[in-house]
Amino acid sequence: MRLIFPLLLTLGPPALAYPVTVQSCDREVTFGAAPQAAVSNDINLTEMMLVLGLTDHMVGYTGISGWNKLDTEMRAGVAQLPELSAKYPSKEVLLGAGTDFFFAGWNYGMKVGGEVTPETLAAFDIPVYELTESCAHIMETGKASMEDMYADLLALGTIFGVSERAEELVAGYRATLEAMRAELPPLDRAPRVFVYDSGEDTPFTAGRYAMPTALIEAAGGKNVMDGFEKSWATVGWEAVIEADPEIVLIVNYGDVTAEQKRAFLMENPAFADISAVRNARFVTLDYVEATPGPRNIGAVKTLAEAFRAE
């Protein structure tokens, strides 16, 4: 699925009656009006704002170029907006931009106990909506699900008074996935998949609460770290070798390319007996596809096809 952001930037004024209240992790957040100076952090959260046609309500974004995540499609979508901070923003950056809403998440622009949190920004009347997937860092949650991404789009629709647009998008995403599954040949069983984000001494991967678990399951596979009670975190290579994944999902971003990550696994004798390495079965998703956002739908298709490839 391709996102054509410019076609989504001509929405009319909000029709929803205020005040409105949304659930954000373990908090309820109430808005008396649609934010007019919003800031989003990270590429996937920013794309959620773009696909809902909310650039007129934004003063900028943060946390993208510092990790080399900006692709051609995204660059066109944010052309009219400034990047206020290459990595995580400070309170001063948000205040200097006149921010009246921050869309971020735990480890997506905010850190537990850090300088920028819903509590620290509340003192400056800057409400925060937290990415649902990231709630696992601060509270007990269920396993990651496609519903997490849908919930964020619907919440943003409520906050900005574009609920109809959000509901149409979510309904379209559901229909697309349902149609895709109906067309794909069934699998004899779910292939074992390991998510390789980064790291050589210890791999950074997606556990039970991270979005790739939901994407892999939607495509018919099983994350070998499904029992790892974490979101995005590090594990030991011993656990990966023992799990013997049949496919390695490489997350592509940053200074180390997907090709370099693949070469590291293929050329290291310690991994020679892993089924995915022995059979050279790899699939790559860009960071923006592997984290919650509109490109998750296309990511499921990519994975589903890879799982069924000879």
Rank of each mutant, 00 (worst) to 15 (best):
V78Y: 03
D125A: 14
G221D: 02
A37P: 00
S85M: 08
P82L: 13
S275G: 03
L50A: 06
G66E: 07
K91P: 01
T132N: 10
A123I: 03
T213A: 10
V193R: 11
A214Y: 04
V20W: 01
R189S: 15
G53H: 05
G60Y: 02
G105T: 02
F103V: 08
N268I: 12
F160K: 09
V162R: 15
S198H: 05
E119P: 04
V170N: 00
E119G: 01
A290H: 05
S85D: 10
N107Q: 12
M74W: 07
A15D: 02
A123Y: 04
D188C: 01
A104T: 15
A190L: 09
L187W: 09
Y88P: 05
E92Y: 07
L9M: 14
E267F: 10
M146E: 08
A144C: 11
D244V: 12
V162P: 00
I247D: 06
D273C: 00
D273P: 00
M149F: 12
T10W: 02
S163H: 02
E167S: 14
P185A: 15
V22I: 15
G172F: 05
E229L: 03
L81S: 02
E305F: 14
L81N: 03
S90A: 12
F31L: 09
R262N: 07
V170Y: 02
D71G: 13
I43G: 07
A233G: 05
F307S: 03
W67Y: 14
I64Y: 00
E200N: 10
E238K: 07
A144G: 12
M49T: 03
V235P: 07
P35T: 07
E217H: 00
I216D: 07
P89K: 05
Y173E: 14
I250T: 01
A299E: 04
M48V: 09
P89L: 07
M74T: 11
M266G: 01
M266T: 09
P6G: 11
V235W: 11
L3V: 15
I247T: 06
G32F: 01
Y209F: 14
A104I: 07
E259P: 02
E217T: 05
A270W: 06
L285C: 03
T62C: 15
G113W: 00
P13Q: 09
W67E: 01
A206D: 04
N268M: 08
E167W: 01
V170L: 13
G199Q: 03
R192G: 09
R181N: 11
A190Q: 13
A97Q: 02
A76Q: 15
A122N: 13
L249Y: 06
F228W: 06
D71C: 06
G220T: 10
I43A: 08
F103M: 11
A263N: 01
T202G: 06
G53S: 10
W237C: 04
S90W: 03
